[in-house]
């Protein structure tokens, strides 16, 4: 009896896994900017979701639930990675290497990406999650609203505020890059 119920839960979870696995990975990838770390986090998130799958009353909310788990795990991973990086920097004190002059455009692009990453990390979590989801292919704003369980207008306003905040932080850097 117990084993049959467990097999049913596993089958249902497997069906959702193919659809929601990539979503969990992309959320983690958006936060971490690293494919290997994002894969680890997505795996952990899916595992946690499976362990608590029987406690989820409304299985229709599985996607949003998984997105939140993945987002939170990715944030935790990012924080611990930052702490580790700071520690390593304090001990090793690596020399700041100048970007190769021959690939100025690439360097400028990488610089902008680094500034974007930093600006994104400084965004409040609510804004960051909505912004990442809105940047993903295949999800409309309505879907994002139902996924995270907030009204459509709230999603729109959060996207707007997040973009504005990012632009404020990146404007000077964009001008610097452009001046080169």
């Amino acid at each position: 009896m117990c084993e049959a119920a467990q097999a049913d839960a596993r089958r249902e979870f497997e069906e959702r896994l193919a659809e929601c696995g990539p979503l969990a990975f992309r959320v983690a990838r958006g936060v971490l900017r690293n494919t290997a770390d994002a894969e680890d986090v997505a795996q952990e998130a899916l595992l946690r979701a499976y362990k608590s799958f029987d406690r989820l009353r409304d299985h229709g909310r599985f996607r949003g639930w998984l997105v939140r788990i993945s987002f939170r795990l990715a944030l935790d991973r990012l924080r611990s990675a930052k702490r580790r990086e700071q520690r390593d920097t304090l001990w090793a004190k690596p020399a700041h290497l100048a970007p190769p002059s021959s690939a100025e455009d690439v360097a400028a692009s990488n610089q902008f990406r680094a500034h974007l990453d930093r600006a994104l990390e400084q965004l409040p979590e609510k804004l960051r999650l909505v912004l990442l989801l809105s940047a993903m292919d295949g999800y409309t704003i309505e879907e994002i609203a139902s996924m995270i369980g907030v009204p459509l207008g709230t999603v729109k306003s959060r996207i707007f505020i997040a973009r504005k905040k990012l632009a404020e932080k990146l404007r000077c850097h964009a001008n610097t890059i452009k001046m080169r």
């Binding site: 990539p22 992309r26 990442l132 632009a167």
Partner: peptide, 20 residues
């Protein structure tokens, strides 16, 4: 546009085949 492009590139990377 640069912000959107950066976000899009960060989020829409190919999912590793080993994940599932």
């Amino acid at each position: 546009a640069a912000i959107d492009s950066g976000l899009h590139a960060a989020v829409n990377t190919e999912v590793p085949h080993s994940l599932l």
